[in-house]
Amino acid sequence: MTASSNAPGLVSRYGADTAFMTFVALLMGFLYVPIWVLIAFSFNDSRSLTWPLSGFTLDWYRTLWANGDIQAAVGNSFYVATFSTLLTLLVGVPAALALNKFHFPGKTMFRRLILLPITLPGIVTGISMLNMFRLFGFNLSLETVILGHATALLGIVVTQVFARLQRLPKSLEEASSDLGANPLRTFFYITLPNIRSAIIGAGLLSFVLSFDEIPVTFFLTGRDNTLPMYIYSTLRRGVTPEINAVGTLIVLASLILIILAVIVTRERER
């Protein structure tokens, strides 16, 4: 009796489960198949990107190793991403702290102005900063790119850190002060440990965004190229297997970064 009454329910539930799993599989495919294709072709023993794969080779990684331009571009990208991230953190974290702690006239306006660069298209940020640098007679270089990226990314750091600060009970800092810690010690012993994972997260995100940024870089760079710019310029000659090899290495590096981030923040939770 129970079996017969349950049967239709089971069937429809099974159907729903299948539909849901199919949807998830499609979504995952949509997200990750391109990356797998990239990785597969980076090991493919053929210059042309055609299916089926013809054989396994590490040649593209060897040519990559010998290609000075790519190496310089990767170096430049790391340089730009590292320093623009440091710069945004240096400006963004204190800005978030000020927003959280102090009440001053025009605070809302200040907050919106800081967040504005995220919503501005990179082209606008790029052109306007280009004009500014010209006006002041700066030479374009990787350093101007760093300034440009830092400006564009500031909003990310401020929003992330500010959101975390807002969730931190005010009483924690009060308790620290009550227990004899001056404001500096309260910051290092209480506030910083509690917003550390937000800072790390925002820093990683800034790093990745800066690493593959094109529009701002396009306007603000001098003679040096970052990796995305280099790839973009070689694309005119078509996608070469070396590019796939670079892409695969970047995927690997990102994975390592993500795992590191998870480990670091886990450690904090425990």
Binding site: L172, E174, A175, N182
Partner: peptide, 20 residues
Amino acid sequence: DPPYKRAVNMVFQDYALFPH
């Protein structure tokens, strides 16, 4: 005087224990 210079201590309503 700021709180850190007063010889008083407080038990907060939400206890304010440091989670980390």
